[in-house]
Simulated scan of single mutants.
Amino acid sequence: MTIRRVLADERLSTSFPLQAYAFESSPITDSRAGEFRAYLPYNDGNRTLVVEKDGVTLATASAIPMRQNLRGRVQTMAGVAGVATHPLARRQGHIRALLRQLLDEMRDEGHPLSALWPFRPSFYERFGYVGLPKARTASFAVADLASLLRADLPGEVVWERIGTGYPTWREFTERCLRDRHGFALFPEYRAVALRDRDEHWLLTARAGGTVTGAVTYRIDEHGGTLTAEDLLTTDPYARMSLLQFLARHVDQVTTARVRIPVDELPELWLTDLDVHVEARMTRPDSSPPMARLLSVDALAGLPVGAGRVRVKLTGDRWLAGSHLLDGTTGTLQVVTGPAATAVAPPVATLTSAGLSALAYGVLDPVEVSLRGLGDVPVDAATELRRLFPRQLPYLFADF
């Protein structure tokens, strides 16, 4: 059995067939298999590894070189995707071996963060990943937006196909990446698939020529549903302008379904809006995303609170040792080695998932202990809470 990296056309006979079996209806037709070649350019920069034995591909996993905002600083991130195993080779440890090598290589290339959408969260928790909030879906009758038709809102909205408006969309998501904790973006070679497929409308809200909100959407049929992807806005005017546009579809569609981040409150958008907000978690097709630190270097220089604590990292391949986390200047200093033990602040013992949960802002230090992700005494919990206040990440990128 060997693990090797595959490139270009090799994916057609190695990784792609396994991924198609794992994530699509099967068996696929010959015509569907022919579409694989058209998908190759969008995988060109991925790092794809396979396990092989006697010329047969047994398992595959890929990492997409992405970027993610962690507490206000954009860093490189390994987006793990396309994890699949031959049906006759499952539960034999192939994925564990692949992930260890894949994350080794991505970390060595300078990716201090990693994120993924898991088929089973508990499996990836053993690899140091921790769950992030899942985006919600707000569903409502378009007729309930009628009051917005009378609203006099500043700015304008622009409506176009995504194939035409893609540069505007990309530029706006780049701004969101800089401004929003947890936000992540595909590399350009992967992101342009949205433009090339050209299967969505793009709606943008603009003020003074600057884009302040954007959403992509599709309509299934007359009298049916308008399904919008992530509603991205920078202020309430932009949100209301986009919703006002949806209100104009009252005689065309019955329902709108809009994906929203966890800090959006659609129940407060309008009075008498009958809205259903849902975040459904099921295995294996609809689990919340997960993320982890691959290096403590990801923490150095982050804007943090004035806490000071020593963390002992345990049970992980990539995060280990004793580190002093000092935020007394407002910028996190990470001290490693003898200097980390020369002072005596409170001490917490953390797994990689525990430290990642604190850095991403998804768990309180007490919850880290309760979840079995570390041992956090009361004094250390106080300092960690000061360093890493609760902050909800919004993992925009959909793998």
Rank of each mutant, 00 (worst) to 15 (best):
V56D: 02
S241Q: 12
Y39D: 14
P41C: 06
A397G: 00
P288H: 12
G321H: 09
I219S: 08
A115M: 14
I162A: 02
R190D: 06
A359Q: 10
V262K: 03
P289D: 13
A146L: 07
F16E: 02
E188S: 15
L12I: 05
S139A: 10
I95S: 05
G372W: 00
A59G: 00
A191H: 11
E109C: 11
A135I: 02
A151W: 10
E188D: 15
G182F: 08
P289C: 13
E156R: 14
M1D: 13
I219M: 10
K134M: 09
A359W: 01
L153N: 02
E109Y: 00
D326W: 02
L332S: 02
L313V: 12
R5A: 06
T225P: 06
G72N: 04
H222F: 14
V347F: 04
P187H: 09
A357Q: 08
R5N: 04
L12A: 04
T2V: 13
V304I: 12
A397N: 14
Y237D: 15
L265S: 14
L387K: 11
P288N: 06
R150E: 10
S114L: 06
T314C: 07
D263M: 04
E221M: 14
G330C: 05
R386Q: 01
A207Y: 11
A238E: 08
Q68D: 04
L232F: 05
L231Q: 02
A291L: 07
Q68P: 04
H181N: 07
P41W: 07
S31M: 12
V378G: 09
D54E: 14
R195Q: 14
R11A: 05
E35P: 05
W318L: 15
L226H: 01
V211P: 00
G213T: 01
E160C: 05
T204K: 07
V277G: 02
D152W: 12
L270V: 10
P154W: 01
P167S: 01
P41L: 08
G213W: 01
P187M: 09
D152Q: 13
E52R: 11
Q333E: 13
A138M: 04
A22L: 07
